[in-house]
C-alpha cells in the first residue's frame, strides 16, 4: 500500500490542479467576454486592439468598455466568493453569505440615502461611498453586540437578521417617500450592474478586495479549526473571539468594496464557496483561492451572458447570476451523493 503521506500529497496536488484548471477556465471566459459585445469588434480584432493598437475605435471599445467591465466582474466575483467563504467559516454556517449579517441591506440603505438626499450633488461616488459606509456600519453593529454579549455564531447571525430587517424597512420608507425617478434608480442599484465602472473604480475596489487576501490565507488554518468547533479551536491555541471579530471586519470590508460600485449581486457569495467545497473539500488553504476563482468565473460569465444573449438589451447582472447560478448549484447538489452539512 502506498504511504499515507504520499497519498495525502497526491490529494493536495489534485486540489492544486483544480485551482490551476479554474485559472485556465477564467482565462477562457475572459477571452470570450473580450470578443463579445454590442459593437462589431470581433475575436481577433479585439486582441489586436488589446496589445498592438494604441488608438482607434476598436482600442477604445476594448480598453474603455469591455476590459474594465471584465476586470470589475472578476474582482466582484472573487470578492463576494472570498467573503462568503470567510463568513461561512467564522459563523460555522453553510447558509451564511456576504449578506447574512445584514450587510447587503444596510449598504442598499446607504445607496438609497445617497440617491434620495443628494439632490444636485448626485454622483456615483457619493452612492458608492454611502453604500460602503453603511455596509461597514452594519458589521460594526454586529461586532458591538457580539462584544457585549458573546461572539458565538448564533448571536451574530441573529443580530445580523435583525439588522437586515431594520435597514430594509428604512430603505422601504425612503423609497415610499421618493420620486419615480429616484425609485427607478434605487431598483436599478438593487439589481446590480457593471455598466458604470471605469478604471478608477477598479483601482479603489481592487485595493480593498486584494489587500486582505494574504491575511485570509494566513488564517486559513484557524478557519479550518473553527469548523471543528470553538472548544477544539481554543484548545488548539486559536483565539476564537479575535479571529471571528477580525474575520467579520475583513469580510465586510471585502463585501462593501465589491458591491459599492456595482449594487447588490446576490447568490455568488453563497454558492461559489459551496461549489469549491464540493470539489476540493473544506481545507481553507485551497478553498479560499478556489472559491474566489469560481466567483470570478460565475460573475464574468453571467455578465457576458447578460449583455450578449438579449442584445442590445442588457439584463442586470444580479438577475443573471441567479439564473445561471441556481441551476448549476442544483445540479451539483443532486449529483453529490453525500450529505455534506
Amino acid at each position: 500500500m502506498q504511504d499515507i503521506c504520499e497519498q495525502y500529497k497526491d490529494f493536495s496536488t489534485r486540489k492544486l490542479f483544480f485551482i490551476v484548471l479554474l485559472v485556465v477556465v477564467l482565462f477562457g471566459v475572459v477571452l470570450i467576454a473580450l470578443s463579445q459585445g454590442a459593437s462589431s469588434v470581433g475575436f481577433f480584432e479585439s486582441f489586436k486592439a488589446l496589445f498592438r493598437q494604441k488608438t482607434g475605435l476598436a482600442h477604445a471599445i476594448v480598453w474603455e468598455l469591455r476590459l474594465p467591465r471584465i476586470v470589475m466582474a472578476i474582482l466582484v466575483g472573487c470578492g463576494l466568493a472570498l467573503a462568503g467563504s470567510v463568513f461561512q467559516a467564522i459563523l460555522r454556517n453553510p447558509l451564511a453569505s456576504p449578506y447574512t449579517l445584514g450587510i447587503a441591506s444596510s449598504s442598499g440603505f446607504g445607496a438609497v440615502v445617497a440617491i434620495i438626499f443628494s439632490g444636485s450633488y448626485y454622483s456615483q461616488y457619493l452612492i458608492a461611498g454611502s453604500a460602503f459606509f453603511f455596509a461597514l456600519l452594519a458589521s460594526l453593529l454586529i461586532l458591538g453586540i457580539a462584544k457585549f454579549k458573546s461572539a458565538t455564531p448564533e448571536t451574530m447571525i441573529l443580530a445580523g437578521i435583525a439588522i437586515m430587517f431594520l435597514f430594509s424597512s428604512l430603505s422601504s420608507l425612503l423609497q415610499y417617500m421618493g420620486t419615480v425617478e429616484e425609485v427607478h434608480e434605487i431598483v436599478f442599484w438593487f439589481f446590480g450592474s457593471l455598466s458604470k465602472v471605469g478604471w478608477k473604480e477598479i483601482g479603489v475596489a481592487s485595493v480593498m478586495i486584494l489587500l486582505p487576501v494574504p491575511v485570509m490565507l494566513r488564517w486559513s488554518w484557524d478557519f479550518n479549526l473553527l469548523a471543528a468547533g470553538d472548544e477544539s479551536a481554543k484548545a488548539l491555541g486559536v483565539n476564537v473571539t479575535r479571529i471571528r471579530m477580525c474575520g467579520v471586519v475583513f469580510a465586510s470590508l471585502i463585501t462593501a468594496a465589491a458591491i459599492c460600485f456595482t449594487g447588490v449581486i446576490g447568490f455568488i457569495g453563497l454558492v461559489a464557496p459551496h461549489i469549491a467545497r464540493m470539489v476540493i473539500g473544506g481545507d481553507h488553504w485551497f478553498l479560499l483561492p478556489a472559491s474566489a476563482l469560481i466567483g470570478g468565473i460565475l460573475v464574468l460569465a453571467a455578465d457576458t451572458l447578460g449583455r450578449t444573449c438579449w442584445a442590445p438589451q442588457i439584463i442586470p447582472l444580479g438577475i443573471v447570476t441567479s439564473f445561471i447560478g441556481v441551476p448549476f448549484f442544483f445540479y451539483l447538489l443532486m449529483k453529490k451523493k453525500r450529505e455534506y452539512w
Binding site: F11, P94, N224, R277, Y340
Partner: peptide
C-alpha cells in the same frame, strides 16, 4: 491536549486533515 466529547462538522474534512489540525500550534 484536549479531546472533546464530540466534534461538530458542518463542512467536509478528511480524516488526515482532522488529525493535522492537532499540529496547529
Amino acid at each position: 491536549g484536549y479531546v472533546p466529547q464530540s466534534s461538530p462538522s458542518k463542512f467536509p474534512i478528511t480524516v488526515f486533515d482532522a488529525v493535522l489540525m492537532g499540529r496547529r500550534p
